[in-house]
Amino acid sequence: MTKTTPRLRGEDLTLAYDERTIARDLDLEIPDGSFTVIVGPNACGKSTVLRALARMLKPTAGRVLLDGQHIHSLPSKEVARRLGLLPQTATAPDGITVADLVARGRFPHQKLLRQWSRDDERAVDAAMASTRVSELADRAVDELSGGQRQRVWIAMALAQETPILLLDEPTTYLDIAHQIEVLNLCAQLHEEQDRTMVAVLHDLNHATRYATHLVALKEGRVVAQGDPGEIVTARLVEEVFGLPCVVVPDPETGTPLVVPRARTSRLGRDSAHPAVHAAAHAPAARPAGGAA
Rank of each mutant, 00 (worst) to 15 (best):
A137D: 04
R122G: 02
H109Q: 02
W116L: 03
T131M: 01
D120P: 02
L113E: 12
L136I: 05
M128D: 07
S117G: 09
A137Y: 05
R132M: 09
E135W: 06
R114E: 13
R106L: 07
S117E: 08
V98K: 04
S134G: 10
R114Q: 14
V124H: 01
R139T: 02
R139I: 05
D100S: 08
Q115D: 11
K111T: 14
M128A: 05
D100P: 05
S117F: 00
R139A: 10
R139C: 09
A126D: 15
E121W: 03
S117C: 04
S134R: 13
M128S: 03
L136G: 08
A103R: 09
K111V: 08
V124D: 00
R104I: 00
R104D: 05
A123Y: 08
S117M: 02
R122E: 08
D119T: 14
D138T: 13
A137S: 13
E121N: 06
A127T: 04
D119E: 15
D138N: 13
A103T: 09
S134L: 10
R122I: 02
P108F: 01
S117T: 15
R118E: 12
Q115L: 08
A140G: 09
Q110R: 13
A123F: 05
A123T: 07
M128K: 09
V133M: 07
A126P: 04
S130E: 15
V102E: 03
D125L: 11
D125E: 14
D138E: 13
R139Q: 10
V141N: 01
L113M: 14
L113H: 14
A127I: 04
R114M: 04
D120L: 04
S130K: 14
A129E: 15
A129L: 13
R139F: 04
D125C: 06
A140Y: 00
S130F: 06
A129C: 08
D125H: 11
K111M: 10
H109Y: 02
A103E: 08
D125Q: 12
G105W: 00
R118C: 01
H109W: 02
L113G: 10
A129Q: 15
A140D: 01
V133F: 06
R132P: 01
D120Y: 01
A140V: 03
A127L: 05
S130Q: 15
V98F: 02
A129G: 07
Q110M: 10
T131P: 03
R122M: 03
R132C: 09
S117V: 02
E121I: 01
R104H: 07
D120Q: 06
A137L: 03
G105E: 05
P108N: 06
E135Y: 10
Q115H: 11
L136R: 12
S134Q: 12
Q110V: 09
V141A: 00
L113Y: 14
V98S: 04
D138L: 08
A127E: 00
A126C: 08
T131C: 08
A99V: 12
Q110I: 10
A126S: 12
R132I: 02
R104E: 07
A129W: 10
R104A: 01
F107S: 11
W116D: 05
M128P: 06
A127C: 04
S130Y: 10
G105R: 03
A140H: 05
P108R: 08
D100W: 05
A140R: 12
F107C: 10
L113C: 08
S134A: 11
L112G: 06
M128Q: 07
L113W: 15
V102M: 03
R114H: 10
